[in-house]
Amino acid sequence: MAPSKPELLPGTLDLLILKSLALQELHGMGIARRISQITNGAFEVKAGSLFPALYRLEHAGWLGSFWGESETKRKSKFYRLTNSGRNGLQTEAERWERISLAMANAMCAR
């Protein structure tokens, strides 16, 4: 049986979106591609969860958006981190580090 792709843990999608926008502004598809890239293809984000998450984060003030042109000159909606989004990314990343370290320790325990 082929190993199935891991389900996104609750809250990890938001963190991955924030992380993918840390270096540059991206449109929706760009974010999905970037997440796939930085997780070595482990996570494929589907539109059904991506766009609600984008809306939620924008509504919470962590993301800003504007209409621009894609690399292929197509009109697209771009997202970027706001200041509070940048702070959010930092605290969430630290929290995630603690969790993943704890989980890794727990799984290695004998």
Partner: peptide, 16 residues
């Protein structure tokens, strides 16, 4: 309108 447009461009980008 914006949601429609955003999703349309998303589909077109994937198709491209």
């Amino acid at each position: 309108q914006e949601l429609d447009e955003e999703l349309r461009s998303y589909i077109e980008l994937l198709a491209e």
